[in-house]
Simulated scan of single mutants.
Amino acid sequence: MILSLRHARVRYGPLEALHGVSLDAPGPGVTVLLGRNGSGRTTVLRALAGAVPLSGGAVVWDGVDVTRVPAYERARRGLCLVPERQAVFGSLTVRENLELGLDDPAPALDAYPQLGPLLSRRAGTLSGGEQRMLALSRVLSAHARVVLVDEPAQGMSPPVAARTYELLSALDACVIVAEQRLPPVLHGRRALVHELRRGAVVFSGEASELGRPLGMTGGGTTP
């Protein structure tokens, strides 16, 4: 399975955020979109999910042009997007969040046992790292074909961040993550990396081709 952008352009009003971006993300496996804030990596995820329209180019899924397929239909076909913010229902409890779309929350708790004592808490009261665990635990149990995650390890401690990437890497899905730096757990692996700057791809290759990582993006203290 391959999810691709072909000469994709995205505009926000008068500003163009993507300048003819072309990239492939094969699956199963992890593809990393690297770039600083404003590089276009989040816009790439949103374009792939159908959350923003293209002003030019195409989104291709398994050889089929899905550019005009709406976001809800892409979700029905097995695409899940976990945005950087507002990825959980803050007014619902952790248990209620897990029960949305999941017949059995047990696999989610297996992925992140830290959520067990928090089941009765409202999701909006959790720390940033705990909210990321909750959002990801639902995706990990959803049997999705495509998983798009914006900064999955944000707010997590290094051990939890490393486990998160191990869980994502084990999925039988095309997994695309957006990060500011290459996660240490992926350094030296055959994960595909696309680096973006100012809305354009400046590097495409394997993670092993990049230099030594500077550190995990997650900077929190979630145990």
Rank of each mutant, 00 (worst) to 15 (best):
E84K: 11
L92E: 06
D104G: 13
R163N: 00
T43F: 02
L134G: 02
V10C: 04
H7N: 15
G29M: 11
H143L: 13
S169N: 11
A58D: 12
R46H: 15
P83H: 10
R190W: 06
D172G: 15
T222F: 02
L18H: 04
R6N: 08
E166Y: 05
E195S: 11
L23I: 04
V59W: 13
G219P: 00
G20K: 08
N97C: 01
P184N: 05
P184A: 07
L81R: 13
R36Q: 12
G13D: 01
L3V: 15
H7I: 11
V177K: 07
E130T: 11
P28Q: 15
V185G: 02
V66I: 07
S4F: 04
L23W: 11
R68D: 12
L115N: 01
V139Y: 05
L210I: 14
G128N: 06
G38Y: 03
M133I: 02
E195R: 14
A173N: 02
P183C: 09
A200K: 07
D103T: 14
H143P: 00
L33S: 09
Q180C: 10
G205R: 07
V193E: 13
T31C: 09
R145A: 12
T93H: 12
A142N: 04
Q154S: 15
A161H: 00
C174R: 10
S120N: 01
E151C: 04
S169V: 00
Y165S: 02
D150Y: 13
G35F: 09
P159N: 00
V30P: 00
H187S: 12
V59H: 12
A161D: 02
A178S: 09
A153I: 08
L214G: 14
D62I: 01
G63V: 09
G211V: 04
A207P: 03
Y12A: 13
L15S: 13
S141T: 04
L33K: 05
T125N: 09
L134N: 00
P70K: 10
S157Y: 05
L118C: 01
V149K: 09
A8M: 02
L45D: 09
L115G: 03
H194T: 06
L100V: 14
S141C: 14
G199M: 12
N97P: 01
G29H: 09
R68E: 10
P184T: 12
L214I: 13
G29R: 11
V30F: 09
G205S: 05
R77A: 15
A161T: 02
E96C: 06
L81N: 14
L186I: 01
G199Q: 14
V69E: 11
G56E: 08
V64E: 15
L3Y: 13
A58R: 13
E16L: 02
P83Q: 11
I2M: 15
V44E: 10
S127L: 03
G20F: 06
L148R: 01
Y12H: 14
R9Y: 10
S4L: 06
T125I: 03
D104I: 09
G124S: 11
L126W: 10
P223T: 04
L168E: 13
A49K: 08
T221A: 15
A162H: 10
P223S: 05
P184R: 08
A162K: 12
R85Y: 11
P105E: 06
T217K: 08
N97Y: 06
S22M: 03
